[in-house]
Design a protein around this nucleic acid. Structure first.
Length: 270
DNA sequence: ATGGTGGCTTTGCCA
């Protein structure tokens, strides 16, 4: 059994106690963090070691972004990719001893205006997703065991947002982003593990809403419940038969001084 | 229609 978590932590130093609490309570093997918001020099390596996580791949920068993979299992290899010509610490990957590769992404949020001419951040986001697609197409095979996790900053399905209609022109759910992410996923053959476990419609045809992020700006995030599913765990087909469980732990949004994202977990039986 | 909150810091920028 291997348990893998992805969590946009929005400052790992500010929330280290909460992360340690999470690890103690849920006992995952591998924790992938985004938005660690610190350089490697001030990353809390020792705190994770003391908690039993001896293996870490960290790619931090000052103030912004930054990704890390924290593990109880050793790594056979570790590497990082750059996209759109920027070294802004949005990807890190490891290979486990059995060859399974884990890719941890923090896709650009894309700013407020969904127009590539008016908003360079939106252009950056779309280019980033394009380059992700090209990289996997050129460098990897769908028959390899791989897990892609992270804050992809796109909610692909109508059931991944609180209101499909009201978010059609809101960055994270615009048709062009959804199209690019879907092509990236389907052309290669990734499977969305969370939606595999919780399909968008139940047996009666009712919507099954799933969110992983709720804005800090809501007066009461739980009461308004205007969430979006921005965080994802994808698997290649060889891992699909061993997918045991998928879970979005929304209770962590209600913690004291929470991240605006919650942890997503998959359990693989192999 | 607007502004709402949070983190790190370059007290503005990013989300």
């Amino acid at each position: 059994m291997i348990k893998i978590v992805t969590w946009n932590i929005n400052s790992v130093r500010l929330r280290i106690e909460m992360v340690l609490d999470f690890l103690q309570k849920t006992n995952p093997d591998i924790l992938c963090l985004q938005e660690i918001k610190t350089v490697n020099d001030t990353f809390p390596f020792q705190a994770f070691k003391d908690a039993g996580y001896s293996y870490m791949a960290v790619r931090g920068m000052k103030s912004y972004n930054g990704v890390a993979i924290i593990s109880r299992l050793p790594f056979a290899d570790e590497f990082a990719l750059d996209f759109v010509g920027k070294q802004d610490c949005r990807h890190i990957a490891v290979r486990l001893d059995d060859g399974c590769e884990i890719h941890n992404f923090y896709v650009p949020a894309g700013g407020d205006i969904p127009d590539i001419n008016e908003n360079p951040k939106f252009a950056h986001k779309l280019d980033f997703v394009d380059e992700m697609r090209v990289w996997f197409a050129n460098n990897r095979d769908i028959q390899q065991k791989m897990v892609l996790v992270g804050d992809l900053n796109i909610a692909p399905l109508p059931e991944d947002v609180w209101s499909h209609k009201q978010l059609l022109n809101v960055v994270s759910h615009t048709p062009i982003e959804v199209e690019k992410l879907s092509v990236m996923r389907d052309e290669f053959g990734w499977c969305d593990a969370v939606r595999h476990h919780y399909p968008a419609r139940d047996s009666d045809g009712n919507e099954v809403k799933l969110y992983s992020w709720w804005s800090y700006r809501a007066r009461d995030w739980q009461a308004s419940n205007k969430g979006r599913r921005l965080d994802h765990i994808w698997l290649t087909p060889p891992l699909l038969p061993v997918l045991q469980q998928a879970d979005i732990a929304s209770l962590w949004r209600g913690a004291e001084k929470p991240s605006d994202h919650v942890p997503i977990t998959v359990t693989l039986d192999y």
